[in-house]
């Protein structure tokens, strides 16, 4: 017996359509409630009050300070934050020093977008990007970049490109989780890390809390490692930004990041390639990467983090260059 057409259509198609509408409605509602719950958590829970990344705001305030004099600005990742005794440089140069380096994983694009607009005519920028920044996607940042964007109250979000937005979205759960963990861990009677925190910095922006500690030693086996694909897009972007800085009367010294001997050996090929690329740029003050390779014993916990003895030597080495190129006033 033939089934009436209307009934057949209803039987086959109408119920699924109603089912689908119901499903989409419920799914949308669930996702909306979930989002609300996450936003509520983000607002309600505090970010670590003594968090290492909070220093970014301090450093940027120093750079933006109304009426500040022309200064030596040290910029890069944590190699810079851990790399200098700025007081020594300041005394020798007789000009203010601002250590604006913080965390390589913020991504070099975020670092320069946040810092460069605050530089002023007469500033000397000692720029030490880490080698990893030129390879793969590290220039666009990882979890610390997300933290910094949220800590800025999204004020820095306007500078983000789509890759940074992607990294921001990917690392948002980590940011929220750090808030949850801080809420719980802070309530526990546990010893806090004295080095990776806001109070570890001195007034110049150097990390100095580890100078008296002897709890960690950098060590890395000899291997050969590759940093990834050369990021030519970002390299072009960086050069463009630096050209604009120079046009504003800011002197730029591209100074290779300090590196432990073993790490230099392991990454030698990528370092030499980066060096050759940097030499094609119109910034003349490039030092041989090999000249800032120090013994492993100078380093604290990573290949980039100097102990006090290393930071002093690094500062003296930088001073020699600054004096040589005649920036002393």
């Amino acid at each position: 017996m033939d089934v009436p057409l209307l009934f057949r259509r209803t039987d086959v198609y109408l119920f699924p359509i109603l089912d689908m509408k119901r499903f989409l409605k419920m799914a949308a509602l669930f996702i909306a409630v979930l989002m609300l719950a996450l936003v509520a958590l983000a607002i309600a829970l505090p970010y670590n009050r003594n968090g290492f990344l909070r220093e970014q705001a301090v450093k940027m305030r120093m750079l933006s300070c109304h009426g500040r004099k022309a200064a030596v600005v040290l910029l890069g990742g944590s190699n810079v934050a851990f790399g200098y005794d700025s007081e020594l440089i300041s005394d020798s140069m007789n000009m203010p020093v601002i250590n604006a380096g913080l965390h390589a994983s913020a991504g070099l694009k975020y670092i320069i977008d946040d810092c460069f607009p605050r530089l002023r005519t007469g500033d000397i920028l000692v720029f030490s990007p880490e080698y990893g920044h030129f390879f793969g996607k590290m220039a666009y940042g990882e979890a610390p970049m997300a933290d910094l964007v949220y800590l800025s109250g999204m004020a820095t979000a306007g500078n983000l490109n789509w890759r940074q937005w992607y990294a921001l979205l990917n690392n948002t759960p980590k940011y929220l989780r750090s808030k949850v963990e801080y809420t719980f861990l802070n309530a526990l009677p546990m010893a806090k890390d004295p080095v990776y925190c806001l109070s570890a910095f001195n007034r110049y922006g150097d990390v100095t809390a580890h100078w008296k500690l002897d709890d960690k030693r950098f060590s890395e086996p000899l291997t050969t490692s590759k940093l990834g694909e050369w990021n030519s897009d970002f390299f072009g972007y960086l050069i463009g930004k630096m050209e604009k800085l120079r046009a504003r009367g800011i002197r730029i010294i591209v100074y290779p990041p300090i590196l432990a001997q073993t790490a230099y050996h392991n990454k030698r090929l990528d370092i030499e390639f980066t060096d050759s690329m940097l030499r094609t740029t119109p910034f003349p003050y490039i030092v041989e990467p090999r000249t800032v390779v120090y013994p492993d014993s100078f380093f604290y916990d990573t290949e980039y983090h100097l102990r006090k003895v290393g930071a002093e030597r690094h500062s003296r080495d930088l001073l020699k260059i600054l004096h040589r190129i005649g920036t002393r006033r």
Partner: peptide, 10 residues
């Protein structure tokens, strides 16, 4: 869901 979201890492 919230628990899972918080533990997500890239």
């Amino acid at each position: 869901s919230v628990w899972t979201f918080l533990f997500y890492s890239v």
